[in-house]
C-alpha cells in the first residue's frame, strides 16, 4: 500500500458502497449484512490501489451489485423498485423487450412511406380545414388538376427532404421531431376529415348532376323529350338527323317530362338512328288499378299543311317558327359524317 486513504477517497468509497447497498434493497437485511459486512473496507483497498475513480475501475454501483449477486448466489432478478419506475426507466425496459426491439429495428425502413404520408396529410388537412371537405385519396384543394399537381409537388418535396437528411446521415433533431409531431397531428386531422367525407362527397355528386344533365334540356332546365323539325315553309319534317359541330349525333332525349311523367320511345316504332327526329314517343302513366298505359305523344301532321301551324295542336311559338329571314341550309352540314348513308327512315313525302 502506498499511503493512507485520503478523506476525499473515504467519502467516495462511502458513497459508492451506499449506492451498491441501495441496489440490493430487495435482499433480506441479515443476508445482505452477511454479504456486505466489510464492503467499505474492501472498496477502500481498491481505491487505495490507484488514483482512478471507483466508478471508472469497477463500473457503476448498479453493475457492481449485479455482479455481486451472481457471485454470491443471490436471486438475479431485481423486482424491487417496480413501484417507483420512472417513465424513462419504463421506456428503457420496453425497448429492451425483443418484439419492441425488432419493430424498432425495421421502423427506419418505413421512413419513405412516412415522407409520402406527411405530405399527403398536410395537403389533406389544408383541404379539410380551409376548403371544407376533401377528395379521397388525393386531395385537390378544390382546384381540380392544379390541386393534384400541388399534392404531387408537396410529396416530391417531402421525399426530397427526407432523402437529403438520410444522405447527410443526420439524426432528426428536436426541431424536426417537433415538425414531425405536428404533421402526425395533421394526419389525424386528415383522417377525421375523411371520416366525415361521405356527406361532402354526396353533396358534390348532386352538384355535378345538376351542372351536367345526362339528357337534353333547355337553358332553363326544362327537359327536352322530343324534337320536332319543320321546314321554312312550316312543313313538318321527319327523319331529320341532327349532329353537333363535331359530327357527334345529338341524341339523349329526356326520359322525364317537366311534370315528372316518364317518357319512352315507342317500342315497336320503325327502327331509326337515335339522332333522327322526330321520334315516336309515348308518355307512360298508371291508372288506379296499377295498370301501365302508354299514351303516344302527338306528332305533327304528316300531311303538308298550308298554315304555319301544324295540326297537332303543338304550336311553335312565333319566335321559333321558321321565318323567311332564316334560311336553314338544305342539308345537314356534317363534317366527317355521312348521315345520308345511315339506316334512317326516309322522309315521308
Amino acid at each position: 500500500m502506498t499511503g493512507a486513504t485520503s478523506v476525499g477517497r473515504q467519502a467516495e468509497v462511502a458513497e459508492y458502497a451506499a449506492a451498491v447497498r441501495a441496489a440490493l434493497t430487495d435482499v433480506p437485511a441479515d443476508r445482505c449484512e452477511e454479504l456486505l459486512e466489510d464492503l467499505e473496507d474492501h472498496l477502500a483497498e481498491v481505491a487505495a490501489d490507484g488514483d482512478a475513480p471507483l466508478e471508472f475501475r469497477l463500473g457503476s454501483p448498479r453493475h457492481y451489485a449485479d455482479e455481486l449477486r451472481t457471485a454470491a448466489g443471490l436471486p438475479v432478478a431485481p423486482p424491487a423498485e417496480d413501484d417507483q419506475v420512472g417513465l424513462t426507466e419504463l421506456v428503457t425496459r420496453l425497448r429492451s423487450w425483443a418484439p419492441v426491439r425488432q419493430v424498432e429495428a425495421f421502423l427506419p425502413e418505413l421512413r419513405p412511406a412516412w415522407w409520402v404520408v406527411r405530405a399527403w396529410a398536410a395537403v389533406t388537412a389544408v383541404d379539410v380545414v380551409f376548403v371544407g371537405g376533401t377528395s379521397f385519396p388525393v386531395p385537390t384543394l378544390g382546384l381540380g388538376p392544379v390541386g393534384l399537381l400541388i399534392t404531387g409537388a408537396a410529396i416530391a418535396w417531402s421525399v426530397r427532404l427526407g432523402l437529403q437528411a438520410r444522405a447527410e446521415g443526420r439524426e432528426p433533431g428536436r426541431h424536426a421531431a417537433l415538425v414531425n409531431a405536428g404533421l402526425g397531428l395533421l394526419t389525424l386531422v386528415a383522417l377525421v376529415g375523411l371520416a366525415d367525407g361521405p356527406g361532402v362527397a354526396t353533396a358534390e355528386r348532386v352538384y355535378v348532376e345538376d351542372a351536367q344533365p345526362d339528357h337534353l334540356v333547355h337553358e332553363d332546365g326544362t327537359p327536352i323529350t322530343n324534337i320536332l323539325p319543320f321546314s321554312s315553309t312550316g312543313e313538318p319534317l321527319t327523319g331529320v338527323l341532327l349532329y353537333d359541330q363535331d359530327g357527334r349525333p345529338i341524341d339523349g332525349l329526356a326520359d322525364v317530362t317537366v311534370d315528372g311523367e316518364s317518357v319512352e320511345t315507342v317500342p315497336d316504332a320503325p327502327l331509326q338512328p337515335g339522332n333522327a327526329y322526330p321520334q315516336q314517343r309515348q308518355v307512360l302513366s298508371w291508372d288506379q288499378y296499377g295498370e301501365e298505359t302508354a299514351v303516344p305523344m302527338p306528332l305533327p301532321s304528316i300531311a303538308p299543311s298550308a298554315g304555319i301551324e301544324p295540326s297537332t295542336g303543338i304550336e311553335p311559338s312565333t319566335g321559333v317558327a321558321p321565318s323567311a329571314g332564316v334560311t336553314p341550309e338544305p342539308g345537314p352540314a356534317v363534317p366527317g359524317e355521312t348521315p345520308g348513308t345511315g339506316p334512317g327512315a326516309p322522309p315521308t313525302p
Binding site: 500500500m1 452477511e34 477502500a44 451489485a65 455482479e67 449477486r69 448466489g73
Partner: peptide, 26 residues
C-alpha cells in the same frame, strides 16, 4: 465484485476462516 461476492459466499458456507489484521497504512 465477483471475487468479493465469492469470498463472502464461501465464508458464509463455512469453507473459510477469517481474521482481521490491523493495517498501519489503511
Amino acid at each position: 465484485a465477483s471475487v468479493y461476492g465469492t469470498l463472502r459466499r464461501l465464508y458464509a458456507a463455512g469453507h473459510l476462516t477469517s481474521y482481521v489484521v490491523p493495517s498501519a497504512e489503511g
